[in-house]
Amino acid sequence: MTQFIKKSIVALAMVAISGSVFAAGELNLYNWGNYTSPDLIAKFEKAYDVKVTVTDYDSNSGALAKVKAGGHGFDMVVPSANYIQIWINEGLLIETRPDQMSNFKNVAKDFNNPSWDPGRHYSVPWQWGSVGMIVDTSVYKGDINTSAIFLDPPDELKGKINVAPEMNDVISSAIMYVGGEPCTTDKAILRKVRDKLVAAKKHWLSMDYGMVEKFAGRDVAASLYWNGAAYRAREKNPDVRYGLPQEGFALWMDSIVVLKDAKNVENAKLFQNFVMDPENAALISSFASYANGITGSEKYMPEKLRTSEEINPDPKLAAAGKFLPACSPEATKMYTAIWTELQK
């Protein structure tokens, strides 16, 4: 009898220890750097007893190349809209049918049947935003709602400009600036784009990420960048403003998808459904300061963020924005060639 009691105590202790240390399941998330809310992860871990590991990447193409190479061990990834078709066509994703999940009803109408994933058979909205100009207005007082800030820079800004090293955002901004449509294959337009970018590059300081800190430290005075980062930079440097180029600017949405060689498919599906809950989507936005495409999440966001000009721009200025379509392979090939030439 005492033997039995001893044994059961040991067994119970083991269960208790393993319960506290080892979660029942795992989930490996591969996401953009500085983009995943720790609160969201903690909440998911607690709700489903799943250990979540987050790994960062810094470009769509980098993430694609790494996953294609295999042996990565990730379950989920968060590509931008114009990359989703590539991921699908390369056969890298599982059709998890988010449109049949219980929280799908919360997805905003604008985003529940997007061109890049008709019917949302693969992807769930993570965040969306715009590509615009962050400008330190203590350095430059002129009009900031133009791509001229980085393509025909005013003297005050020369040598103090950063450009986000994300090919599609840079090239499409330049295409719209010289009067073309995103994804064009018109060589006359693209030649103008290349010449403009190459000529402008000598006025740039850097092509780098991490701009929230750089604006806070006043290391750069202007950057082609994203609205959420602009909001975070303004929190740290009150002179920072966000401009929306009226020649046309790009809108983007990053969506979360499940990889074909995922080991934790069921947890990944749970996570997709989880982030479509307004309260959880609000956690994502509160961390990275972008809108999320889930109806009803606004009321869980901090007041300051919800009413900020970065998330709620003047409708007159916002009208110039358009979502980037998925470009044809020959367009992508030409853009890559321009991009490589620009990077060197």
Binding site: S59, S61, A65, P165, S206, M207, T340, Q343
Partner: peptide, 21 residues
Amino acid sequence: GGGKNLMLGNLIQLQFDQGQN
């Protein structure tokens, strides 16, 4: 270098990442 002043190591990395070559 801020991603603009490449050295050989960065040029090589670029080809495996964004350059896709």
